[in-house]
Design a protein around this nucleic acid. Structure first.
Lengths: 340, 340
DNA sequence: GTGAAAGCGCTAACAT
DNA sequence: ATGTTAGCGCTTTCAC
């Protein structure tokens, strides 16, 4: 059934099991010659350490869990990819958990896998701050695109990004915008709105908020209708998926983008560059975020548990200007055409 | 550090540890009253079975690994999503492994996690048949979009799909097509080409093959150039990513799609519907494929190991006709415009 | 239906 | 530097 054990190797190599164990987990504490011999024998026998036996005594599993709020969202792909690669490089295994936008499922799953993993990567967690703080107190946790006091996190910088976004819109002549908000329990939704509103105030632009909306293409229909209703000439959607849905509905309604209304999204997913018109969006180094999060997590696993500061990393976002933003012709008809 | 054990529960409930164990893993073999009491006590104490201790004796981990050839390809995300959901429903955990298009990495990673999982889902494996057969002989394996004699698999039906694709092209007036092949060690690439060639022969269409190409957007440039070189009026790309890359290059070169040349892809990824022109492609129920694969795997875990037939499931593909295919104006100028 | 006890394969004191 | 020896928390015969 299962392969050779540490005993087989020990016997074959003429050493004690503890020596074999050390040869694998703590090579420095075994004599040069012994070590090579042991490893040699192990290789010959095809010995592979049993991770469960190992975990049982050492409480280390070489596994980390990545929990994403919605595996349906392509945005997470890049995060997952970065995390997987970094984990693999460190000989860690990545367990993938989909919270399906439900705080309840999220928590259930976290409990379920808690014993099998060394730590958690929580991407866009929908749980309340208190729950996250509590979890982080008992297990190593790194938050991604979510910030909670005292918990390490990697968040794509968006405050300045939102400012740039609003500035871009303002410079095109927009004087009124609407933010189509993401889910109520999305920290990002709140944080982005705050940044947008601040920038809008500063730049003399009127900003409204509508929502919350599920961050999906299909909820873009209702979101677009609501946005049009506000009379704003610029729409900032919570993410690219929603923005793409908005674009669709706008096309159906023969509202021209960007002539009649400008649309911008967040994340710069692969599809943002392909849709028509190509979407202006606030992108970020998502893959790198995934890597960084794993790095911090692994760090907190190896480093002594003494009070390291809960670090917060915020790699810069970048406003990618494409074709969905432009001068509103209705509002500023100094160009060629008239209003819609 | 870690929570209460089976001993704590046993003591509190006034039973033996074996009874507690049974209450969890084999409820039928414990008296009604005892069971409820044990479970009650366990809940009160916040007891959670330790999966490693459990795995150590039982050799079952409640975990399956999904290995994908390239996590970069959005196509896999539907597969992953389906698999994750089905696994979760069965209280199994999904481990995600990216083979990075390398048979070597694929094999290494499989070895690495072999002891930690109950079985493998191998999506678009790049390994030789022999290696897969060998692996399948020692561990439960389900292949996805790959077929190897004697190994259970779920493959989106594509033989008939390819035929429809070629028929669609032929009906539009195309008499010559080129298939831009995927990676050399991609089973799908070979299988699709065989089906395309057969259909082409049957329908009196000339078919060329070019490649292999990496199934990525960026290799679409060279692929497009080669395709144009063949003079074919229709291009069948190995997957949507490659097709999108082809579309890009064609646009750069001012080759009109579909007037000058038609383009079709495979997979019907999210972006296929968004690019310009929208891509005609052979889609499939990918999420369902992921689910089905997990189901078969779990089945082979629970069912006795006696010789079940290695089942092969092939859910139907569907030709999604969009705007990238049309009548070649150069070849059949019976419409309005002239050739390019 | 329930209990006693022997491991599963490994790590980690503690010796030497 | 290496060996001895307890367990880690659970499952699983084997008794009763």
């Amino acid at each position: 059934m299962s392969g050779p054990t540490i005993y087989d190797v020990a016997r074959s190599a003429g050493v004690a099991t503890s020596t074999v164990s050390r040869a694998f987990t703590n090579p420095a504490r075994v004599g040069e010659a012994t070590r090579t011999r042991v490893l040699e024998v192990a290789r010959e026998l095809g010995y592979e350490p049993n991770p469960h036996a190992r975990a049982l005594t050492s409480n280390r599993t070489q596994t980390v869990a990545m929990v994403v709020s919605d595996i349906t969202n392509p945005h997470f792909f890049e995060l997952i990819r970065g995390a997987e690669m970094r984990a693999k490089a460190a000989e860690y295994t990545l367990v993938l958990v989909n919270a399906e936008e439900s705080p309840r499922i999220e928590q259930e799953q976290i409990r379920r896998v808690a014993r099998s993993v060394d730590g958690f990567l929580l991407a866009a967690s929908r749980q309340p701050d208190a729950d996250l703080a509590e979890l982080a107190a008992s297990r190593p946790v790194v938050l991604i695109n979510r910030q909670v006091r005292g918990v390490p996190s990697v968040v794509v910088e968006h405050s300045e990004g939102c400012r740039q976004m609003v500035a871009h819109l303002a410079s095109l002549g927009h004087t009124s915008l609407v933010y189509l908000a993401g889910p109520r329990n999305s920290w990002m939704a709140g944080s982005r709105w705050a940044a947008i509103r601040a920038a809008a105030t500063e730049l003399g632009v009127t900003a409204h908020r509508s929502g919350p909306y599920a961050p999906t293409v299909s909820s873009g229909g209702a979101a677009a209708d609501a946005a049009i209703g506000t009379g704003a000439s610029a729409i900032i959607a919570h993410n690219d998926l929603l923005a793409i849905g908005v674009l669709r509905r706008l096309a159906q309604r023969s509202v021209r983008v960007p002539d009649d209304v400008s649309v911008v999204g967040f994340d710069d997913i692969f599809a943002a560059d392909l849709c028509t018109p190509a979407l202006t969006t606030l992108g970020g180094p998502h893959e790198q975020v995934g890597r960084a999060a794993v790095e911090i997590l692994l760090d907190s696993l190896t480093t002594r548990q003494d009070r390291r500061p809960a670090l917060h990393v915020a790699p810069p976002s970048q406003l990618v200007i494409r074709d969905s933003t432009g001068t509103p012709l209705g509002a500023a008809p100094q160009r060629q055409g008239g209003a819609g």
